[in-house]
């Protein structure tokens, strides 16, 4: 039922995220990226599956672990690398950095340094869509830690009370920094929180892009028929620590191995080959193209200028 092209596109997106994060971690280790850098490694299927179910006019709201959402929403990695390097050619002119990438032109309303801070913003975007009778759905990404925060409960309730076109995408990677989800919430499955608010809620294998896609597609369709919101809990796992400087020693080795054995990128490749009948050659072509694009992006970002003081002070005058 899924075409070869569609499956290869999903794979390409996930592989792009994988390569983007891997290359940027190298840049970080070389001292070219500063500040906090939270890789999306291991969670590629969630952003990819959800964004594949969205239309051009729709919005996403991202998080501090947002590079994957950004890429899945169609960002140009050139401007992403430039942003995380603090260059003027970055999406936010180098003023935002990794935790604040936004690309409003493609409906990515932005990442957020305040955990949970984006959730009500997404609800507001959906409200605007409803008031203006536009056919826009908002996918709000957030993780288990954010689900502990008060704004999540309030936003869920508000979106429910007003039947807003929101897909709440709870990326349950089982950790908020080093705090395991079992220690921060009594519920075994976080999607049940939505049920308490009367909201249709589902759980999917967040490492399987097709499962994510199917659930997201259904949720988006419901939202378009004013039957939203919908909550999707996607179970997944980070491939490393919380950020680049966190070794993640507290993550039990066997759990990590289990999730790595269900690596979303490898699973996605498998789908393309088994369901889509893609060949090794098709995959190799994609891998090569992705790596090339990334190499060019890194070169572009390195060569790009930083904003001058003059331009900066001009911009922030009277701010």
């Amino acid at each position: 039922m899924y075409s070869k092209k569609f499956l290869l596109d999903l794979y390409k997106t996930m592989y792009t995220i994988r390569v983007f994060e891997s290359e940027c971690i190298k840049l970080y280790r070389q001292g070219l990226i500063r500040g906090y850098y939270h890789p999306y490694l291991g969670e590629e299927a969630v952003g990819t599956g959800v964004c594949a179910a969205l239309g051009k006019q729709d919005y996403i709201v991202s998080t501090h672990r947002g590079h994957g959402h950004c890429i899945a929403r169609g960002a140009d990695v050139k401007h992403m690398v430039a942003e995380v390097l603090g260059k003027e050619t970055g999406y936010c002119l180098g003023l935002g950095g990794s935790m604040h990438i936004a690309d409003i032109t493609v409906g990515n309303l932005g990442a957020n340094g305040i955990v949970g801070g984006g959730i009500p913003l997404g609800v507001g975007a959906a409200l605007a869509s409803k008031i203006r009778k536009e056919d826009r759905v908002v996918a709000i990404f957030f993780s288990d830690g954010a689900s502990n925060n008060g704004v999540f409960a309030e936003s869920l309730n508000l979106a429910g009370a007003w039947s807003l076109p929101v897909v709440f995408v709870l990326e349950n990677n089982h950790y908020a920094v080093c705090t395991p989800v079992e220690k921060s919430c009594k519920a075994d499955d976080l999607y049940t929180i939505g049920q308490g608010f009367g909201i249709e809620s589902h759980m999917v294998d967040g490492n399987d892009v097709l499962e994510v896609y199917a659930a997201a597609q259904e949720a988006v369709a419901k939202c378009r028929k004013a039957k939203g919101p919908v909550l999707i809990e996607a179970k997944t796992y980070r491939h490393g620590g919380h950020h680049v400087n966190d070794p993640g020693a507290y993550m039990p080795q066997d759990r990590l191995e289990y999730f790595k054995s269900r690596d979303p990128v490898t699973l996605g490749k498998g789908h393309a080959m088994s369901i889509g009948k893609a060949t090794k050659n098709d995959i190799a072509k994609i891998d090569k193209a992705v790596q090339k694009e990334m190499d060019e992006a890194v070169a572009f970002a390195k060569e790009s200028p930083e904003m001058s003081e003059e331009r900066f002070f001009e911009l922030v005058e009277n701010y």
Partner: peptide, 15 residues
């Protein structure tokens, strides 16, 4: 400090 949100860019942060 300058009346602005803090820019990410290293040089501008320092400025």
């Amino acid at each position: 400090g300058h009346n602005t949100p803090m820019p990410f860019n290293l040089h501008l942060e320092s400025v």
